[in-house]
């Protein structure tokens, strides 16, 4: 791996003196790679993703994303970094009073993209995810699987460099989880780097992707 897209060097994250959530994390993830972050609840998977997305700052160590040292990134520049990354959450984080279309369009609106471009692109993404006929519907009227697909649509609509997913199948049954999994495989096949955090061993066993195992804040494999 010549120049990794994401690199963590001796990264620590602690909240109080006694509460260390990440400990000496060293990690390199290349462009277009699909990586699973696996580990039990409380292992530090979510915190690791938060550190990469700059929701949390590391206490010690360096985090590099596409050549940017996050330690040196000012707060005002963080939104611009996040626009180059997509994030999918276990609880979807859809906005209840916005339609499916508006939820997905939000990622582009914050970038100030023209309305006509947004309409075209959002329609295209919703179509590719089989959500075209649901675009005027509000999230509460969708099934869990559909809501997660909307969340994925919102995360990929800006063609991000990297897609981060935090237990995206955690609230779904096995059938829906498999659908979402194949969706991530498709996105990865198009060249997007995918970091997929899950505690679901079944899901990992069904693929032959690179797996990073976290336990009590440390990488153990």
């Amino acid at each position: 791996m010549d120049s990794p897209l994401i690199e963590l060097k001796h990264v620590y994250k602690s909240y109080e003196q006694d509460l260390t959530v990440l400990e000496d994390i060293n990690l390199r993830i290349g462009k277009g790679e699909f990586v699973f972050i696996n580990g039990p609840s409380g292992a530090g998977k979510t915190t690791l993703l938060k550190v990469i997305l700059c929701i949390e700052r590391s206490t010690k160590g360096e985090v590099w994303v596409d050549g940017i040292n996050l330690k040196r990134l000012s707060n005002s520049k963080i939104p611009y970094l996040r626009r180059r990354m997509g994030m999918v959450f276990q609880d979807f984080k859809l906005i209840e009073n916005l339609t499916v279309f508006e939820n997905v369009a939000l990622s582009m609106e914050v970038c100030g993209i023209k309305k006509s471009v947004i309409e075209q692109r959002v329609d295209q993404v919703l179509k590719s995810l089989g959500l075209e006929i649901k675009k005027r519907i509000y999230p509460r009227r969708l099934s869990g699987g559909e809501q997660q697909r909307v969340a994925v649509a919102r995360a990929v609509v800006n063609d991000p460099l990297v897609l981060l997913a935090d237990e995206p199948t955690g609230n779904l049954d096995a059938g829906r989880a498999a659908d979402i999994m194949s969706l991530f495989n498709e996105i990865s096949a198009r060249g997007t780097t995918v970091i997929f955090a899950t505690h679901n061993q079944e899901l990992i066993r069904s693929t032959a992707k690179r797996v990073i195992i976290l336990d009590q804040g440390r990488i153990v494999n």
Binding site: I55, S76, P79, R82, K93, I95, L106, S107, V110
Partner: peptide, 16 residues
């Protein structure tokens, strides 16, 4: 708060 949190996560600036 949830909506504003989501906006921040998708890259909305403070101005937005």
């Amino acid at each position: 708060r949830n909506e504003l949190e989501t906006m921040r996560l998708v890259g909305a600036t403070n101005f937005f």
